[in-house]
Design a protein around this nucleic acid. Structure first.
Length: 939
RNA sequence: GCUCAUAUGGCGGAAUUGGUAGACGCGAUUGACUCAAAAUCAAUUUUUCGAAAGAAAGUUCCGGUUCGACUCCGGAUAUGAGCACCA
């Protein structure tokens, strides 16, 4: 046992007094390494177990890199704007900075008790005017370059509160607080133009070492889709409207159009007799929250406007509806609907009785050049009473099939199907439930020795009654009529019949690829050919073009809050906007008597004097009273750590050039699209402007997983009784134990449950290390070589695992080394010192303590990192497995220089191997050098 | 619904390019030390059969590729995360 509280305090004081971890950013003589943690919001609760995990991981890497001779920058700071401080201010009337400063001090104190190697001289806090001056400065540039602007956007507007609400502040179309009605309304919002960066952000993802899942999430969020714009004329109107579609190839199947209820043309095109209905529907939609509009999407709603659009490819008049399944905010807020090939349109068309025209049919079988064309049917007949399907069994002559047949001249498909059912099975009373999508089918008929290419129409029938008439069969039609259950139906081999059955079971749109039909110049083409051909046609006829669309929308960049960066914009009386000059920054938050925003208005509206502004040339106006969102400061803070005191620029370009990008960025996966997207946008903007040296700010990103309660349940507000407070653990077991335990729990990215006995185990290991390595009698001056191999293995494994953040396996290797030391009973001092050095990355306090005990006067933090020598790792004799038919039967020792034949011979010697090959024929023997010997035998 | 990730002993988790599944830790069992307990040290610990040698099964389930599959391929199930009428 050792007195961790004394030791830990001692070394924390030492590091502070000696400024051990202060980084000279201007020292370019060594290679740089920039390790960054996502900075925390300084909450009054302090650190949680998840913080400790991420921070320890980066701490270990930064310590190793420092020992490897890098100039390491490992800073820490605070994302200190936020709601708790504001609430405190509202309640107490005190300025939120008091509260914030107190929490920062508390948080920093906690971080220090865990022994992290932060360079506190680089600390930043986003709520510090010295910092937010530059947040405002970058924003100002975004604004002047047109990337930040006021945009008309639909928002949740609450008249009673006089404010805009976010989606989660709206419940059932009413405001969460007060229950006042909320409507969707277009309003001017301060936004950052994210879509302008979409393409660059997508490209940037290719070059960075991030978790694939996070990149994928960002791609989905950006939501690029390649399609086309198609312009429709409106019958009897001058106006045209444009739709966005990814499937312009299906234009011949467009049987109606839909505008979003908020679409600008709705009022204009609605005919007199539909006005009332349309107005009512618009009202209903406006009062629905986004959530309701999407969550209740099972049932499509909408109303007809009375107007018709003209399909440009065939001049057909098709009705224009409005429906909330079309979003005003995506594409053009209008669509062409192709019910045959889109699930949503299909649903809508079914409900409103709109025609469904199939223009693409699935292809089965392989086409042949000399095939005979014909039209045919497949009828799936189901008896709801017995739950069985009607099939005919040709036995060995063709297996089981549904009813099929060829259409006669001038016979429509449905009549043909009914006739065939009667002729082949005798059943005469069937009810057609659905006509199924047509299928193009190619096959070879043995009995006729001919290739056929058919267009088959499927039908789904219910049997009404059992009444039968006499069958009318040709001579060669020899089969049994059988009613079978679902299981037997799935045994049907024929592709056409099986496909038809699938359509019958899952009615809906055909969204797969296929061959175009009923589409004039597209007929016979597949999906991609047809899209290309259609775009060409649209462009030639000036009614459409290729177009890329993004889900990515404007980033609303204003909040009705006090505790955020003031926006450096003034709204002048003449209606124009004025941006503050650089010299006027920072625009500091005024002290207020009352920090509450009344009637939902921004709290800064209370600053009557501060609000007033007069330009040098005497124009007066009022300041923007919204503040920036929380993610503003965090979008660029990693620049400021490099050069935190600079008063001329946000970061000296020479320093940025040297230190960026961040080499390792660690933080929770919850920021996968928020913060990590915003930071990339701001950096990309700065890069394009020549103010950032890199296209992407974070070269390598790792997410630490969540630490769950002992029962595997998420810690937090819902189950506070399971929460683990790192403070308590550090107090009871010491910071070194806490750090070691969290690193040993499992892979850093995985979510893993806390285990109290696991902490005990970590403590036990530290005690074991301490006991052995502080007993100087265990250390020998000379090295007899017993531990040489295991030592070099350990150095290799630990170095590689630290590099790849595999801390659990690195620790496991260190445990193996210590176990070995105990077994041997002594350890050469040179190995002991290097081992302690590796340990010191994880457990820095006992690392320094033992280092000092060994007679060193300086910190261990800058000692050169141990190196391993491959020559001690190669084994002259190695145990490999001998398998017989893939099952291990023995192990043998082989030498490096043994030939395959020698190994094989040695393997055959083994008694257990002999037993298993006895009396059997050896087919072959596989020898893989240094790995395995497999003998394949057969009876 | 869509996208992504994950699935290995009683538990947390190991396992290069496919090559002895279960490293390391926890827990459990046994032994040593002790008057005793704790701590410590040593040993055993995937399951089943067996005194042992050994055998059989085994990485969520089903199927495939291979001399050989936790690893690769196809399909299913479960859990977690994100998105959610994106035309």
């Amino acid at each position: 046992m050792y007195d961790f509280s004394k030791i830990e305090k001692k070394w924390q004081t030492y590091w502070k007094e000696h400024q051990t971890f202060k980084t000279d950013v201007w020292d370019f003589s060594k290679p740089k390494f920039y390790v960054l943690d996502m900075f925390p919001y300084p909450s009054g609760v302090g650190l949680h177990a998840g913080h400790v995990e991420g921070y320890t991981a980066t701490d270990i890497v930064s310590r190793m890199k420092r020992m490897q001779g890098y100039n390491v920058l490992h800073p820490m700071g605070y994302d200190s704007f936020g709601l708790p401080a504001e609430q405190y201010a509202v309640q107490t009337g005190n300025h939120p900075s008091q509260f914030t400063e107190k929490n920062i001090a508390y948080f920093s104190e906690q971080l220090n008790t865990l022994g992290f190697d932060y360079d506190w001289s680089k600390m930043v806090a986003t709520s510090d005017p010295k910092f937010y001056k530059w947040t405002q400065w970058i924003f100002k540039n975004l604004y002047q370059d047109g990337y930040a602007k006021y945009v008309d956007m639909p928002v949740n507007w609450c008249e009673a509160l006089g404010t805009v609400l976010s989606n989660d502040e709206v419940v059932d179309g009413k405001s969460e607080r007060g229950g006042y009605p909320v409507v969707r309304k277009n309003m001017k919002q301060l936004c950052i133009d994210q879509p302008a960066f979409a393409e660059k952000l997508l490209e940037g993802l290719e070059e960075i070492d991030w978790p694939e899942s996070t990149k994928e999430m960002q791609r989905n969020w950006i939501g690029k889709s390649i399609g086309a714009h198609v312009t429709f004329k409106i019958a009897g109107h001058e106006k045209e409207f444009t739709v966005f579609t990814t499937r312009c190839d299906t234009l011949f199947g467009a049987t109606y159009c839909v505008l979003a209820p908020e679409h600008a043309y709705v009022d204009e095109i609605t005919t007199e007799e539909h006005k009332k209905e349309v107005e009512a529907y618009k009202q209903a939609c406006a009062s629905k929250s986004d959530l309701e509009r999407t969550e209740l999407n099972k049932d499509k709603t909408g109303v007809f406007t009375g107007a018709y659009a003209i399909n440009p490819v065939n001049e057909e008049k098709i009705p224009i509806y409005i429906s909330d399944y079309v979003l005003a905010s995506y594409g053009t807020g209008a669509i062409m609907a192709v019910p045959a090939h889109d699930d949503r349109d299909y649903e809508f068309a079914k409900k409103f009785g709109i025609p469904i025209i199939q223009v693409l049919e699935e292809v089965t079988g392989t086409p042949h050049e000399n095939e005979t064309k014909k039209e045919s049917i497949v009828a799936v007949v189901y008896n709801p009473k017995t739950k069985k399907y009607l099939t005919i069994n040709w036995h060995e002559k063709g297996g089981r099939l549904f009813i099929g047949g060829t259409r006669k001249e001038n016979e429509d498909a449905l009549s043909c199907a009914i006739r065939e059912i009667q002729e082949e099975t005798g059943y005469k009373n069937v009810e057609c439930i659905a006509e199924l999508p047509k299928i193009e089918h190619h096959y070879y008929a043995y009995n006729k020795d001919k290739y056929f290419g058919i267009e088959s129409t499927g039908f789904f029938f219910h049997l009404k009654d059992e009444e039968q008439v006499e069958k009318q069969l040709d001579e060669d039609e020899v089969f049994d009529v059988e009613w079978v259950d679902e299981k037997k139906v799935e045994e049907i081999q024929d592709e056409l019949h099986q496909k038809t059955y699938q359509y019958a079971k899952n009615p809906g749109a055909m969204t797969k690829d296929g061959t175009h039909i009923h589409s004039k110049f597209l007929n016979g083409m597949n999906k991609q050919e047809a899209i290309d051909a259609m775009v060409k046609w649209l462009e030639e006829h000036h009614c459409g073009s290729r177009k890329v669309n993004y889900k990515f929308r404007e980033w609303i960049f204003a909040r009705q809050r006090y505790w955020g960066e003031p926006v450096p914009i003034v709204h002048l009386e003449d209606g124009t906007d004025y941006v503050l000059e650089d010299a006027e920054l920072p625009l500091v938050l005024p002290e207020l008597a009352d920090y509450k925003g009344h009637h939902g208005k921004a709290p800064l509206e209370n600053a009557t004097e501060w609000k007033q502004y007069t330009t040098k040339d005497g124009r007066s106006g009022t300041r923007e009273t919204s503040t920036m969102p929380g993610s503003a400061g965090s979008s660029w803070y990693y620049f400021r750590y490099i050069d935190p005191e600079n008063e001329k620029i946000f970061c000296d370009p020479k320093l940025a050039e040297h230190w960026l990008p961040v080499d390792l960025y660690m933080g929770g996966p919850e920021h996968a699209v928020g913060h990590l997207m915003y930071s990339r946008i701001w950096n990309r903007y700065l890069y394009d402007k020549g103010l950032s040296p890199v296209k992407e700010p974070f070269k390598k990103l790792v997410h630490q997983g969540m630490i769950l309660g002992e029962n595997g349940i998420k810690m937090g507000k819902r189950y506070p009784e399971y929460a683990i407070d790192p403070k308590d653990i550090a107090k009871e077991y010491g910071a070194d134990t806490l750090r070691l335990y969290e690193m040993f729990m499992g892979p850093i990215e995985a979510s893993k449950p806390w285990s109290a006995s696991g902490v005990e185990g970590a403590k036990k290991f530290i005690d074991r290390v301490f006991r052995f390595f502080t007993n100087l009698e265990n250390l020998t001056e000379e090295n007899d070589g017993t531990l040489t191999k295991i030592y070099h293995q350990t150095v290799k494994k630990v170095t590689e695992d630290f590099e790849s953040l595999g801390f659990n396996t690195a620790i496991s290797q260190m445990m193996i080394f210590v176990n070995e030391c105990y077994k041997v009973g002594k350890c050469p001092k040179e190995y002991a010192e290097k081992f302690i050095q590796m340990m010191s990355c994880i457990t820095p306090h006992i690392g320094e303590e033992i280092w000092e005990l060994y007679g060193h006067k300086e910190t261990i933090a800058y000692e050169p990192w141990p190196v391993y020598d491959e020559k001690y790792l190669v084994e002259d004799e190695k145990e490999i497995a001998v398998q017989v038919n893939g099952k291990v039967r023995a192990t043998i020792l082989v030498k490096e220089e043994d030939t395959d034949q020698e190994i094989e011979a040695k393997a055959m010697e083994e008694a257990n191997v002999k037993r298993h090959i006895e009396g059997k024929q050896i087919v072959k023997v596989i020898v893989i050098k240094g790995r395995i010997c497999n003998i394949v035998v057969k009876e």
